[in-house]
Design a protein around this nucleic acid. Structure first.
Lengths: 205, 205
DNA sequence: GCCGTTCTGGACCGATTAATCTAGAAGTCA
DNA sequence: TGACTTCTAGATTAATCGGTCCAGAACGGC
């Protein structure tokens, strides 16, 4: 933090937040420098580059901001203290609720902000893809843990079940962006969790 | 078709095909005129505009081409002569197979080509969204038909089940683009279809 | 008051964007 | 052959892209 010199004329934190929403809504490439500067209160190019370095660096800050806030709906998947079924169900329902929320862009930043990408920005796509991979792995671990603990039948096709849940999870983004209401997404999640129960080892009487 | 004048120096049909693949891979906005002209054999701007009118018109032609070819994997959903279960299963499995195919871009044109969009191209996003809506409706009709015919229990939550299948269907795009192999997608589809069977009215003995 | 530091407004950069224009080439038809 | 039509190569358009530069403003420390 600088203790001397002319103070910044805008709130850097709010600016990152506003930029995140722009990237979230329109994606990395369609979001222009002019839009970004405008959403920060009409700051100048000099101010922009002094504060963030580049458009790309700002995008990475936006991603980090998203992961630390809205993206936390996926946290249950990475919490080993939760029962696997609980973790999965919470990830689904929290994702659905967050992504269909109306106080920010619809859908998920991680799946939607770098979908359409020029070859020269491939590394940015890789950045968010890596995040999806993290969730995919966590989900797989969750399901494996459920089998290990006897909460799913031993014969369960874990790879297939993981892909099923992950594909649904990813699909929520597109569904939410198309305007599907939370009620329907939640009902779909309920159906899917009923399936989990059907695959659960029946209690020995 | 013109019967007089200098003949076109390139194959218009092949050009539309090549453009479709570019839009499919990178999306509408990141695909530049230079790339498009290059993939058509390095034609000039004049040739391009004489043949297609505009970048946007070409995109619409590309979409139409996709729907008439690769997009036909969704046809079962619109075929009332198929049993509902068969229609849904075929739509899932054919989508998974097509979208993970390696002789064209991964995923689905309809869900991926206009995801990241500037406000001024909103109408193009609406164009592909409308296509998704068509499939959503067809899927809902399919499931309603299954209930009506007694192939699913009368108490079935049709809206929830429709959203479940549609969300999975959309998710296949993102999953395929992330490189998930057909084997896993197919296993996930199998799990989902097993769920259908669990919801089916049990046969009276 | 003055110095060093940091930020700001605005001009400016080359590159690229989608799209247009002009001159001429290459065909059909009479 | 010559009129007519259609397409092509290449220069050119205005606008916008992400990014840089500079002169001066606004602060803390001395």
């Amino acid at each position: 933090m600088p203790r001397t010199g002319r103070p910044r004329g805008f709130d850097r934190d709010q600016a990152v937040e506003a930029a995140m929403e722009l990237f979230w809504e329109h994606g990395y490439e369609p979001t222009s420098l002019s839009q970004l500067k405008a959403c920060m209160g009409g700051i100048s190019s000099a101010s922009f580059y002094a504060a963030f370095g580049s458009k790309e660096a700002l995008f990475q800050e936006g991603l980090a901001r998203y992961l630390a806030t809205h993206g936390q709906v996926m946290a249950p998947l990475h919490d080993p203290s939760l029962k696997p079924r609980e973790a999965v169900e919470q990830a689904l329902r929290r994702s659905a609720r967050m992504q269909s929320g109306r106080d920010h862009p619809l859908g998920c930043f991680v799946t939607l902000s770098a979908t359409n990408c020029s070859p020269e920005n491939r590394h940015l796509r890789a950045l968010v893809q890596q995040e999806r991979e993290r969730n995919r792995t966590a989900l797989a671990d969750c399901i494996q843990r459920a089998v290990d603990r006897g909460e799913l039948q031993a014969k369960t096709d874990t790879a297939g079940l993981t892909t099923l849940f992950n594909t649904f999870l990813l699909g929520i983004s597109l569904e939410a962006r198309d305007g599907t209401e939370l009620e329907k997404l939640d009902a779909a999640a309920s159906q899917l969790m009923r399936m989990w129960d059907a695959l659960a080892e029946p209690e020995r009487p």
